[in-house]
Design a protein around this nucleic acid. Structure first.
Lengths: 163, 163
DNA sequence: TTCGCTGCAAAGGATTTGCATTCTA
DNA sequence: TAGAATGCAAATCCTTTGCAGCGAA
């Protein structure tokens, strides 16, 4: 059985993530600042997969004085605090997404037409990967898998979001 | 059934690749040069997964006057000519490997201990991925999969190559 | 004698870091 | 008030490009 989630669906609760991040900060004797709140809000309202530039642009609307360096520093901090995970889909630009808080790991399917990213999890596939690694003489620890595909029916594809 | 190949095994024949590359060059009216020969030789003797820096160091032993820019230009050219494929394992540095000349696609398993890269192909796994994509409403075109694992028995791991 | 090639240095793009200043706790 | 955080600019890292001279065909 395959479970999936498309971009923007099922976002973790705003308050919950603010709480986790705040707790992380105080545990380490770090400070809650205006820019950290703004950046987290920007991440929260920017969909599941964002990069530093996107957040920067979003943040500038609220406070134009915030610098790109702070975005990077804060994104890294959020990654350390486990609320975000860093990905490298393209090769150059890093992409961030919410960690699966207490939830399952997932993989990604990227639509060749519109670039939509569908997150999915398939237990059988996971087991199969485990088996293959064992056959090769290894003990699988984790993996990265991205499927690149065309949609079968146009409703599945949000190419309409493109211009 | 899983087939696999470890770094350095089963290298394509030197003469064969030189021929393919030379033909590619003349087809496009490009020139065979001393540095292109040297760089291809360096790639050929550097194992299956190499980066620009590695090739640069190898090449310098033969001709210290060759510049890094030429390495990049030539590597790109070899990628265009289909004898190499560019990969992005880490995220920053690009890695190149020989294309599967008329052969099958493969995935990678990377050893957490020594960084060894094992190439493998498993038809069942491929079919399973296809199925998962279909379930999500997509037609799988290609994919990227990397397994990160620990070796089960020390003989499988070439950590002895590390210092 | 052409152009394609090359080395070098400068340019790029993403991300990080040094530093003086500002601000949270 | 101490020390963390910020903004800015400079610095990195990998890779690409511009350019004037070099060299295959």
């Amino acid at each position: 059985m395959t479970t999936s989630r498309r971009s923007g669906e099922n976002l973790p609760k705003r308050a919950h993530l603010h709480k986790i991040f705040d707790e992380y900060l105080s545990q380490l004797g770090l400070r809650q600042t205006r820019q950290r709140k703004i950046i987290l809000d920007a991440v929260l309202s920017s969909g599941r997969h964002v990069d530093a530039e996107t957040i920067f642009n979003e943040v500038k609307k609220i406070d134009a004085s915030i610098g790109l360096a702070t975005i990077y520093r804060t994104l890294k901090m959020m990654t350390d605090s486990q609320i975000l995970v860093e990905r490298h889909f393209g090769g150059d630009r890093a992409s961030f997404e919410f960690a699966d808080l207490g939830n399952e790991h997932h993989d990604h399917l990227i639509c060749n037409q519109c670039g939509e990213i569908v997150e999915f999890f398939d237990e059988g596939l996971e087991r199969y990967q485990d088996l293959v690694a064992k056959n090769l003489g290894f003990n699988l620890k984790n993996h990265k898998m991205e499927l690149f595909a065309d949609c079968l029916a146009s409703e599945n594809c949000n190419r309409k979001n493109l211009k």
